[in-house]
Design a protein around this nucleic acid. Structure first.
Lengths: 133, 133
DNA sequence: AACATTTGATACTATAACGGTATCATTTGT
DNA sequence: ACAAATGATACCGTTATAGTATCAAATGTT
């Protein structure tokens, strides 16, 4: 299950997309998206570090999209904030050592499923989520 | 990510399958599968309550498979022990109320992905995991 | 230069979940 | 009566989640 943080992040980015290409302050965005200001700040900091959004400080500063809306996918967002939520098993976690690697068919099968899951999420772009809201 | 409990459960059931149709004690199974006895007990209790295995008490009691190996899938096991691990978002959790239901395209898209994930896991039967081990 | 506005970085907190252990009750075959 | 086995439940330490709070640094305006 994705975390509340990731769920909020998606909603925040959808909201941010509505502002077109201008810089939006965390304050405005919190208003617009209904996400608690301080929590949103933390989310945006992470998204900024992951380069999914641009940010700049000072008056007229704020946040803006770093990618075209039809390129940024749910997979990008999830991997930036909460990669474990789309890791099916510990043995498939990047950088994790698995004793049974190569000898365990469970591992192999789960890996295939996980790849399909990732592909599905990569196919869902922010642009396709803007119709309803 | 599935829990260690679920991961162990899969391994335990693969091990149990090796014993063919006889009753196997938790003791034997712990030996055979390398899972800590007390932890395995807890897992088997849950699987028994979910009717994925049969159990009986007393001498000569123990645990045995309740389904043919080509019917029991990874989805069954995960849903029995750790359903949240294959729930993509809180709003898709069974019994969870979602304010935005029907108006939120994110919900709809994630629901589709989740269904595909479930179908993939349902397609992986214990029998198909017994070749290697 | 001073100030206000904005993000960056980090620390903190309460609650829940996870991974496992321990204990006792109950059933049942010999 | 006894031993072997599961059933039920409580417990415990650690980690993760969902936020909140604080201060530092950057930057536009006056």
């Amino acid at each position: 299950m994705i975390t509340r943080e990731t769920d909020y992040a998606v909603r925040a980015l959808l909201s941010l997309a509505d502002f077109k290409d201008r810089m939006v302050s965390a304050n405005e965005l919190a208003e617009a998206s209904g996400i608690p200001y301080r929590f949103l700040r933390g989310i945006m900091l992470k998204l900024s570090k992951s380069r999914l959004v641009y940010s700049s400080r000072g008056p007229n500063g704020g946040i803006s999209m770093a990618y075209p809306l039809n390129e940024l996918s749910l997979l990008h967002i999830v991997l930036a904030l909460d990669p474990d939520s789309v890791t099916l098993n510990l043995c498939l976690k990047p950088g994790e050592y698995c004793q049974r690697d190569g000898t365990c068919i469970v591992h192999d099968k789960l890996k295939e499923v996980q790849e399909k899951l990732h592909n599905e999420l990569a196919a869902i772009k922010i642009s396709s989520l803007l119709v309803k809201k």
